[in-house]
Design a binder for these strands. Structure first.
Lengths: 156, 156
DNA sequence: ACTTGTTGCTTAACATGTTAAATGTAATTC
DNA sequence: GAATTACATTTAACATGTTAAGCAACAAGT
């Protein structure tokens, strides 16, 4: 094979791919430019990305146990413990032990929490719509589909 | 329009997309399953993802200033300051003020740092190859291309 | 019932993410 | 050329990421 195939142009002398053409960095950059657009709204309302993610998942899933919530929100258990403390202190969520299984913590949004989401939802949806407009709805769908394929391929 | 188009099936009552079909969470999950495969190697060699990323970029770019490095490695300046301290203490990189511009810090790998990368490169390349095998080389290329498109669309 | 192992969550310790402010240096402006 | 502005990096403070260890509650096997 010739010394400079397409794939070779993406590698260095040690067999490492060029950093900008690697999944870890590309995915990180992509997430970064997307989140940039949401940060102003989140900061204006004194919530972090992660707190917002936790509340979004709770709104979507209803009351759940902490493990499920951590998984869906992509947050590690130790982080969730701290985030729950913060959000509970703010009155946005409520947690209590599972009667049936004393190990589990059941978590749910309070009315105040749901109200908070309702207020921010329009802004959030609009920001996402702007992103969709710039990238193209179909491109996003394709990207999400490919990511799902990646998840299925690697999680097995 | 009918009340349940394809796009509507991805939204909730507030106009928010279902969390698992949003870019921020999908990109995060994707990155997570990819990094899972690298973590054992990194942990075994006592480097964090970010430290490894910094060294990879330095190996690729040669001596550069801190801002360029931070940008390429997707690391914020304050984090880079700390990471540089760690890596310099370990003897993997060296930093010194730019003679021409007293504000800039010029950073480069030491011979020990380059040697460290050479030792890990084969393992890293092999892990990446396994990932490629599971996802498919062409699928990864497509994914990277779409991410580049996303970056161009949103960075402008 | 007792032991053993497992599970779900928490704590602890350290590294990084994130923003704002501080510092020192370079470029502009007047 | 002194004052101002902009820039590169650092520091500080708090939130989260990450791993390992701890603890209490369940599950299984004996």
């Amino acid at each position: 094979m010739a010394p400079n195939t397409h794939s070779e142009t993406h590698k260095d002398g040690f067999g490492l791919a060029r950093t900008h053409r690697t999944l870890p960095i590309a995915l990180l950059r992509a997430r970064e430019v997307v989140m940039e657009r949401f940060r102003p709204m989140l900061a204006a309302n004194d919530v972090t990305e992660q707190q917002w993610r936790v509340m979004r998942v709770l709104e979507e899933a209803g009351e759940t146990d902490a493990s499920f919530l951590a998984n869906k929100a992509c947050i590690l258990a130790p982080s969730l413990t701290r985030i729950m403390r913060t959000l509970e202190a703010r009155g946005f969520l409520q947690a209590h032990r599972d009667e049936a299984d004393g190990r589990r913590m059941l978590v749910g949004l309070t009315e105040e929490g749901r109200s908070f989401i309702r207020e921010l939802a329009p802004q959030s949806a609009q920001i996402y719509a702007e992103i969709e407009a710039k990238i193209g709805d179909q491109n996003i769908e394709k990207l999400l589909d490919q990511i799902e394929h990646l998840l299925q391929a690697l999680e097995a």
